[in-house]
Design a protein around this nucleic acid. Structure first.
Lengths: 253, 253
DNA sequence: TAGTGCCGTTCTGTGGTAGTGGACCGGAGT
DNA sequence: ACTCCGGTCCACTACCACAGAACGGCACTA
């Protein structure tokens, strides 16, 4: 989307307020007023308007995101076909491996966790469904980018950059393209603590008939608990198998 | 929430626009302008502002709810403890019965579907996670209301009314309270095509230590496929069992 | 190809309103 | 009791969201 010619500033401000509340895990009027740089009373008016329809809720003197947004967010997700087809398979992947299984799609250069399923031993992360993230530092993102034309990947990196988010993040562009080449070769991507220390992931792309990625699925697990053998054999096999089933459902039905 | 003293009209308008887009399953500028009774240009400005951050997306010449809302909605859901504890059990309920299983909570007098899990033979309904609904015409709603003080139920009915939504909806207040009494007696609620023709549900409340409902779970299935025996024995047993497990997890951990 | 209607987009002036700043209030800590 | 800090309320005003009209693209018709 190009920059709007006549943006409605109030809408932008409201969205900003909501994102602040979410990112701070709930907060008060003054804190918000500082961050968006408008007066407390203005913030108060926004919040009480939103609260009136339960788009935010007040708990003590903290405001939190309200459940009304679920009616918009879950609805939006239901509209994506890939969610419908992938969900049961991701569930099974989580059940069978006991780990955390994820589904990601790409929207304007960033990754969105579309669905998460927790196996019995799943790690607890800071991710939540709908969360946006950089593509270059996750196995999911790499699986997606590996099956996109180079120009497109370049454009995304140009726009979003490649910030370092953990000790092992790949921040060199050439190294990154090499990584993508390797990913293509073995058909799955790995994340060796590139986003979070102590966390390793295996991800496989979901591609369409033209071999272009439309999504990716992954399994995430703590480094210390998963043997190298499992990380290099069992999990990739399992993830690839699941991706294959999803592709079949998606492309031939 | 009491009426805000100084509502921000623009925020209200934006929310109204979003709800219209959702309820119409995507629509255009003119249609929206008619419904909210403001000019096309104003609507256009709102939409392009929202689209800029992917809170709406334009597909052809229809606007749709964008995935960015998932980042707010799913986040809000994650914050509710009952979701965390109930989700795996509701999944299992759906798997075992093969039907559609639901989790509902009450917010200011209406029901919100907090989670849905589909078994192998699950019916496809018009419900989606986050959707609000009347409480009096669903098994879930009745299960919730049956374990609330009478005054509270009266207040909710006063505010929301008891509109008829299908041929069999209970619209008489006395009959409804009798129904709630029966529900309390057998500990689960039923919906015999009271909301949708051809659909029957069995629901059980999740109650806290004081025997007050905090949520409800249900199984929904088409009338024609489920024998009376199954509807009166197997499903209630299964739903009650699941509700019990959730209560244990919720109250003693 | 020209004609017609519909719809989304752009542009500009203006009245209504979102925001400011300050006063007020209520709870927690000293 | 006093202070501090945050939330809420209020009146004024600059600015911005909106109306309205004109434009441009697309689809259907003749």
């Amino acid at each position: 989307m190009a920059e709007p010619k006549h943006p409605v500033r109030t809408v932008d401000r409201t969205l900003e307020i909501l994102e602040i509340i979410r990112d701070l895990d709930g907060t008060g009027v003054s804190e918000i007023a500082d961050r968006v740089d408008i007066g407390k009373s203005a913030v108060h008016n926004h919040l009480s308007t939103l609260a009136n329809r339960e788009y935010v809720v007040k708990e003590g003197d903290e405001y939190h995101i309200g459940l009304s947004f679920l009616g918009l967010g879950a609805y939006a997700r239901n509209r994506t076909e890939i969610y419908e087809t992938a969900r049961p398979e991701v569930d099974e992947l989580a059940d069978d491996t006991g780990e955390l299984a994820n589904l990601m799609v790409e929207k304007s250069g960033s990754g969105i966790y579309l669905y998460q399923a927790e196996g019995d031993n799943a790690v607890q992360l800071d991710t939540y469904e709908g969360k946006r993230t950089y593509l270059h530092c996750t196995a999911l993102g790499k699986a997606i980018l590996a099956f996109r034309p180079r120009e497109e990947v370049e454009a995304i990196l140009d726009e979003r950059g490649m910030p370092s988010v953990s000790e092992h993040t790949i921040t060199d562009r050439e190294a990154f393209f090499e990584e993508l080449a390797e990913t293509r070769e073995r058909n799955y991507a790995v994340d060796r603590e590139e986003r979070i220390d102590g966390l390793r992931c295996v991800a496989a792309p979901i591609t369409d008939d033209d071999d272009r990625s439309i999504a990716a699925i992954s399994v995430a697990s703590p480094t210390h608990r998963v043997s190298d053998e499992r990380f290099e054999q069992e999990l990739p096999d399992r993830v690839l198998g699941t991706a294959n089933i999803i592709e079949l459902h998606h492309n031939y039905s």
